[in-house]
Design a protein around this nucleic acid. Structure first.
Lengths: 159, 159
DNA sequence: GTAATTTCTAAACCTAACTTTAGCTCAAGC
DNA sequence: GCTTGAGCTAAAGTTAGGTTTAGAAATTAC
């Protein structure tokens, strides 16, 4: 099948619950690549509903738009993605998900053995040794999580 | 023990890895309540290292500063929190954590049965029925997650 | 064929969570 | 006792992820 007439941006908005402005914003961020009709209006594939849903879900998981763009770049732009296409990208995405969930789980368990029991003497307590948490990986408020705390330089008194 | 001399903001910054400006910002947001010395400089409890670490960790989990303020409001401000104090607030926090992790886990499993298998005919697929995901609960990009998708109005063709 | 919707672009605005800057005061080291 | 680093305030700037606005053009509905 050749490229159909495509759907308008308002239709996608209605179907996904996103604002029209958000969809245009995603295009600007390189997450979607609509074409234009004769009058200059954006036309999308129906399959972009799925693409947008994927974006919404990935955002729930805390992925940034650039990260999501990375996940999506393996989807074919020119044709409707097949189930196989989705399965392929889902593999990569899935491992990121697992990692994120695992990180949170670890952090929680860590916290459990830490705050919950009032382990005021534990030498590796995350609340005692925030530097382990705050090791400057990259910049901004980008504290690690996937990295296990370890090492310990100076001893410390009440904190 | 009476209120000691307290520690300076730079010390907390060094110990936690946070920027001095961030700590001042947290104070402005009501997450910390330092007192002032004779010269007008902030003085903190050593225990605020723990408080700041807690803030950092809670942020990892995606909690906003106002939410975190809510968790912390049960900690005593005037004295060094005891292990019991921490254990008490950890109870409330812990249940929020569990909830957040559980939500992500569900979303992942949902996605698994959805993208992974290319379930293009499943009537409850999250990728097919984004409205279920985007039901406007509150405002902003605040799509639900804890709520199970259900119902389905119109049938749809390729998406 | 005309009126009401949509859509278009560009630019401004918004919130959260901070950082940077400027000009000034405090405190600590020698 | 002075110099230098640390801290202070207020205001402006920054980034992510969008929304709002304004004025014009395209589409749809009647």
């Amino acid at each position: 099948m050749a490229k159909s007439a495509g759907v308008a941006i308002g239709y996608l908005a209605e179907r996904t619950g996103l604002a029209v402005s958000a969809i245009r914003y995603y295009e600007a961020q390189g997450l979607l690549e609509p074409w234009r009709n004769a009058g200059g209006q954006r036309r999308f594939h129906r399959a972009d509903i799925r693409r947008l849903s994927f974006i919404m879900i990935a955002q729930q998981f805390g992925f940034s738009l650039p990260e999501i763009r990375g996940f999506l770049k393996d989807l074919p732009g020119g044709r409707t993605p097949t189930p196989e296409d989705w399965a392929r990208i889902s593999t990569g995405f899935r491992s990121h998900l697992d990692q994120r969930i695992e990180t949170l789980r670890k952090l929680r368990d860590n916290l459990d053995g830490c705050i919950g029991c009032g382990c005021l003497s534990l030498p590796k307590c995350a609340l005692y040794n925030p530097q382990d948490l705050a090791a400057e990986k990259g910049k901004g408020p980008r504290y690690l999580m996937g990295d296990r705390p370890q090492s310990q330089s100076e001893p410390q008194k009440e904190a």
